[in-house]
């Protein structure tokens, strides 16, 4: 089994606001992330695929294909977008690292046919990231 990781970067705006909270609660829970004008990050996404290298090509999957999937599913949806308004998959969710990582997992997982998606790691900054894994049960 070999793990292969590809990294991409995108920039996007967001803010945190729960319409069911009072303005005071929103400020208390979300702090300066509640600023309604929004703010932005340079996100770094690491996508890891697990599989056996194909004996014919030596590849777990074709990196060019993975690059195209990431371009289509992530870059076109999220790069230079406002995550609260422009990404339908995030509608009704607070666009935290945790939620964005899960949305990206759900977008990529059905598109990867060689190997299996193993981990999605999304950095909001070098010191903060969320990991999304398949919630598999322990092998016996």
């Amino acid at each position: 089994m070999v793990l292969l990781t590809r990294k991409i970067e995108f920039s996007a705006a967001h803010f945190y606001h729960n319409p069911e909270f009072s303005p005071e609660e929103n400020r208390r829970v979300f702090g300066k992330c509640n600023n309604p004008h929004g703010h932005g990050h340079n996100y770094t996404l690491e996508v890891t695929v697990a599989g056996e290298p194909d004996p014919g090509t030596g590849m777990v999957l074709d990196l060019k294909e993975l690059k195209e999937i990431l371009e289509r599913e992530v870059m076109q949806r999220m790069d230079h977008r406002h995550l609260n308004y422009e990404v339908p998959e995030l509608a009704g969710q607070i666009p935290t690292c945790e939620n964005i990582a899960r949305v990206i997992w759900n977008l990529l997982e059905p598109k990867i046919h060689q190997g299996k998606l193993h981990r999605v790691r999304l950095y909001e900054s070098p010191d903060l990231y969320a990991d999304c894994y398949r919630n598999g049960s322990r092998p016996l």
Binding site: C97, E98, A101, R102, W105, N106, R121, P126, D127, L128, Y129, A130, D131, C132, Y133, R134, N135
Partner: peptide, 14 residues
């Protein structure tokens, strides 16, 4: 969908 994935949060300190 909720049970299909598992999320971890990572934070760095110095």
């Amino acid at each position: 969908m909720k049970d299909a994935t598992r999320i971890e949060l990572g934070r760095r300190y110095r």
